[in-house]
Design a protein around this nucleic acid. Sequence first.
DNA 1: GTTCACATGCAGATGATTCTGCACATTTAG
DNA 2: CTAAATGTGCAGAATCATCTGCATGTGAAC
Lengths: 118, 118
Amino acid sequence: MARFTAGELEVMRILWEHGEMKPAEIQKLFPRPIKNAALRSYLTILVDKGHLARRSKGRAFFYRAKTKRESTFRSMLGELVNTFCGGSSEALLCHLLAKEKLSPEELLELHRAAQEKK
Amino acid sequence: MARFTAGELEVMRILWEHGEMKPAEIQKLFPRPIKNAALRSYLTILVDKGHLARRSKGRAFFYRAKTKRESTFRSMLGELVNTFCGGSSEALLCHLLAKEKLSPEELLELHRAAQEKK
DNA sequence: GTTCACATGCAGATGATTCTGCACATTTAG
DNA sequence: CTAAATGTGCAGAATCATCTGCATGTGAAC
């Protein structure tokens, strides 16, 4: 559902973490130097797409994420799984387990943590 | 490293699976109706970017993937982990374990499978 | 040879993404 | 009041992604 370009995602990450902000604040947190006007161009597009909401407060506009971090994560993870793991998460899990070099004990600990999270 | 658009990824998936092909063959396997010329437009771009190689064979051009499926997978997975899991795969693992509703036994079985894969 | 199917070459339209420049409004410092 | 700093509005340039149309070339069937 939610497909973002690299630049859009940089904006979303900041707003997911910091809540409601105005462009100049986002600009300071941006992972690379970006001009204020260039950043506002991203913001306008994201508002048009419905991913951000904005409201006037004082003399500035404040922006906040409407599209949730968690649903974007699920959507992007789903696309990855579809493309590379035949649509099932099992292959992805297997890949991660192989890569992470976990002992069975660590794995079970992780499993317990996952159960708690639910 | 390797960043693909949705359309480019559709092409790459087919070539990863089928090896070397000419446009008309790719066209038949394409997940949606696409005109031959539109498809060739993708192919040209992917060759320019270095993701595909092409060679003349008979009267047609044949295309094959230069960028490997496995490295693209790693790259996209890495980006996902960076964006949503603070750069460590652990949170992703945890998320997947919670979602997959595995029993500890199934988990250990998966773990064994992962060890073997290495 | 003629004709048809298949394949590429090329030019470019369209819209999205990314970014720039400049004008103007408002707050704050002197 | 004046000037600098900070904020937005707006117009649009540059590039890329996606797709279309038409011309041309070549092999195969007749």
